[in-house]
Design a binder for these strands. Sequence first.
DNA 1: AAATAGGAGACTG
DNA 2: CAGTCTCCTATTT
Length: 548
Amino acid sequence: MVLNRNTNSDETMPQTVPSAGFTPPCDYSNFADTFDLSLLPGGDTSTLSLTTTLYTNSPPPMTCPKPKISTTFYSDSPSIKNNDLDLGPDFQKLLGPELTKTQYPASPVEGIYLEVPSIKINPNSPTGSLSPYSTHSLLSPNEQYSTFPSPNSDLYPNSPPEVSLYSPNSYYSDYQQYVKKEFFPAYVKEENYLSCSNPVNYTSLSTSQSRDLVDLLGNVIIKEETTVNFDSILQSFQINDNLLDTYKSGESQIVPQKPKNDHQLLREVLRDTSFQKKFNIKPFDFGLMDNIKMEVPDDRDIINPCSDELSRENIDPVLNLAIEQMRKDVNNTCAVLCISPDPSQWTSANVLSWLQWTTNQFGLSNLIADQWNISGSSLVTLSEEDFTRRAPQSGSILYAQLEIWKAAFSEDDLGAQWLPENNSSNASSGDVSEDEDEEMSTDVDTTKPTTSRSTGSSHIHLWQFLKELLASPQIHGSCIRWIDRAKGIFKIEDSVKVARLWGKRKNRPAMNYDKLSRSIRQYYKKGIMKKTERSQRLVYQFCHPYNL
DNA sequence: AAATAGGAGACTG
DNA sequence: CAGTCTCCTATTT
């Protein structure tokens, strides 16, 4: 974890700014979503090198009569390039191409971030003349963290804070919606962006809950400014957990945190504090963080040549270690169960064995096998609701675990890092594919268990593939996402990328959107897909029952 | 310029 | 033969 202090800014506030153009080599965001900070060991382990940055957005009053205080927790960010961050033509019109295009912030990668937007406008904004929105901190790296207002808004002192929890792993996709929602209500209406892509990770809280969180954030922020007492972070995440629990259980009040029976592996890993010595972590001295190097001699850590080498060492050591362990765990499980690391490749038998294994691991109640007689490609398209419908008690945990696996496999493709522990044969690893290979692939990998490898996704249908992409917004949300999950309406945000992914999956290097869309149009006749009533560009709709 | 629409033939499992 | 893939022309946004 490195604190990059933005020396260009003449603002007084110390800042935690990710390096510009930073492209993390891996997407650990999914992991981060399920990462339960309450697992972290107590006592002197409060020396962990977690950093909290708070940065603010300042929407103009006229577009935000009821300001929201939104909180984004994320401990990593997706490996998305800046050119993926297209906020749309309306946005560009308002902000000008320079701002929206090149100055969109690099992903704020390291640490755990608390985002509290819409507090107050900074009258001293150096870019204030550019647009009324220029104090929007996320749009201007130069002042990205330059304002540091109290969460207790003095702009709207009487408005009840409405707190939203955004998934850490859907930072960009949700952020687009967030921006549109918060700053362009009209635009939102027009395009139906009001529906949230991921209800599991998005919730509104009651006023009292909001105030609790805001109070807490206020304490954290005002006391510590850029560096935050780790206990406070823990506390905030416990609250966060409570809120999520509350949301999931449908209760309206904050409930005492239940002892968790999930994340066992992480618990064990994190209980072991030897990593502190290993990484020379010292109490609260974030300045020293610059010097922390990830001493991971393992050649599995060979970095994607196109990635930013510094990024590797910038990633929070704690998360890194846990992720490492998670990776090993998944590998081991693959070996034990003889299944592919790619859940979408699983046969129905694989699915069952994985479910059984996970159920045992977490001490969950037994599943009804009949409910789970599905292939891996179907499994990965299930929502959390689908999971809980089939397994009311354990659905959420199973879903979360599957998300981890999905992310893990995606990460595997990213940097060829997903090699089993004892197998360094490496399959002539020269094929570290291009920089943007953060996607699923079905490349034959000799290091993977051979069972259930031959068949599978080569026969996948386009509509299945699209649903697969849609099922992992944290990974593919930048190129395709649900607009209305219930109605099966989705939007292709990046046609080139989606086509490339499809071509990769089908081993058709010449695939492009022209051809892909032709295939989609074939679905019109077949009743698999249609255009929406009010036809919008790149927006399609699954017909019933394909939308399920 | 990019997306949409759909005809038509080729390819593949 | 189904399901694309490919190429194409015309039209719309």
